[in-house]
Nucleic acid binder design. Structure first.
Length: 123
DNA sequence: ATCCTGACCCAAG
DNA sequence: GCTTGGGCCAGGA
């Protein structure tokens, strides 16, 4: 089977039918569960929602309806702020006002990353 | 169907 | 620290 350099578009297409809504709802719940003063990452939010590998859809969801969510608490891997321009300044300000610590340009993940209490799930 | 583009991630060089 | 290439998934043209 030949594989397009853009991925197996046909297989992706077959998976698209309808599934998006419950996935987005799960992601919204996960994002809402990030506590004040903590952050998580796109990849961890996706995985905690039950959809590992869907970090790009987390970003898409936040861009569409972030105004209804604690969007500022979702950052890139390693604590990197991924928003651009004015949103970036707003995000930094909101996080600092919640007491989130920074190391240079990045969030101090060792102190502020939320683990979704996974230690209670697998030991 | 195919191509392109994202508030992404990660291993290499 | 960089940059690059590959992988990932969905939605629009």
């Amino acid at each position: 089977m030949k594989r397009s350099k853009y991925g197996d578009d046909f297989l992706n297409w077959t998976r698209r039918a309808g599934r998006g809504l419950e996935r987005e709802e799960a992601m919204r719940r996960v994002i809402h569960s990030i506590p004040f003063g903590k952050v998580s990452t796109y990849a961890h939010v996706a995985a905690a929602a039950g959809y590992p590998g869907y970090h790009r859809q987390v970003a898409q969801l936040l861009r569409r309806e972030g105004h209804t969510l604690p969007w500022q608490r979702v950052v890139g891997a390693g604590g990197e702020i991924k928003t651009k321009g004015e949103s970036e300044q707003v995000q930094r300000h909101l996080l600092k006002s919640e007491g989130v610590r920074f190391q240079g340009e990045r969030v101090d993940m060792s102190a502020c990353e939320y683990s979704f209490r996974m230690w209670e799930v697998w030991g």
